[in-house]
């Protein structure tokens, strides 16, 4: 019976592990070091700000992030004036005006990031039939999360391995499911010039944009973990007190 019980326990553990293993599927996605991982980790704001620069200059030419209000970026350290300036750099559609027409106006922080294409069909038409997915939640919507994003962005290969014939307009990526992806390799060494002077290697860029995408997918992550530490400490104290009370109480039984 002992052994049966331990068999059950190990089955349960195996289930958990296998569940995790199943998540990584065929290709192994290497883990990266993130400032925000772990119980006490918080978003690296400087990195996420650089990531925003990449999003703005590179990604957002094809991808939308339409669930994210510009004001969200206050969470990675942009001041109110900076946010206003960032927002004003975008044109957003407004209206209808008194003549019944839609018109463009400069953005305000309350606006969401405007999308590069008016609708999915336009996005497909401009991208060889492939739809660039919205990036608002991409870090939560892919198995492997930010590690996958990093792997994907650094996983392009100029020449596909022997025996793989790329379909027209497709690119080879080691980590993309199926390996053939409509998106080209877009991160180039010094492809952006970082405002803070950080050398823009491909790895640095991939790291920064992944940190940024992690942030916009869950802007309250830092607050969540900080609250979690407090809640769990509190519950442990309460559990201790409850246990002591219970012991004391039951000790009066004869």
């Amino acid at each position: 019976m002992r052994s049966l019980k331990s068999a059950i326990l190990s089955a349960a553990v195996a289930l958990g592990l296998a569940g995790a293993a199943q998540a990584s599927e065929a290709v192994h996605i290497p883990k990266q070091e993130w400032a925000h991982s772990g119980v006490f980790g918080t978003i690296d704001k400087a990195s996420a700000q650089r990531g925003f620069q990449i999003y703005k200059e590179v990604c957002s030419t094809c991808h939308s992030a339409k669930l994210v209000p510009i004001r969200t970026l206050a969470g990675i350290g942009f001041s109110e004036d900076e946010l206003k300036a960032i927002a004003a750099g975008y044109e957003v559609q407004a209206g209808p005006n008194d003549a019944g027409e839609m018109f463009m106006r400069p953005g305000i922080p309350a606006d969401r990031f405007p999308s590069p294409f008016p609708n999915d069909n336009a996005a497909r038409a401009a991208n060889n039939g492939a739809l660039p997915p919205d990036l608002s939640l991409i870090a939560k919507a892919r198995v492997g999360g930010e590690d996958y994003l990093y792997a994907f962005l650094t996983g392009f290969e100029e020449n596909p391995p022997e025996g793989v014939t790329l379909m027209p307009g497709m690119n080879y990526n080691k980590y993309f499911p199926g390996h053939q992806v409509g998106m080209p390799n877009i991160l180039m060494p010094d492809g952006v010039t970082y405002a803070d002077g950080t050398p823009a290697t491909v790895q640095q860029q991939a790291h920064d944009i992944s940190a940024f995408l992690t942030f916009i997918a869950e802007p309250h992550m830092d607050a969540r973990k900080q609250m979690g530490v407090k809640v769990i400490l509190f519950l442990i104290v309460l559990a201790g007190l409850m246990y002591a009370t219970k012991r004391k109480l039951w000790s009066t039984l004869h």
């Binding site: 119980v39 609250m227 979690g228 530490v229 809640v231 769990i232 519950l235 559990a239």
Partner: peptide, 13 residues
């Protein structure tokens, strides 16, 4: 309370 600790670990982390 012990169960809540387990629960909270999922919710927050």
């Amino acid at each position: 309370v012990v169960f809540l600790i387990f629960y909270a670990a999922f919710v927050f982390f």
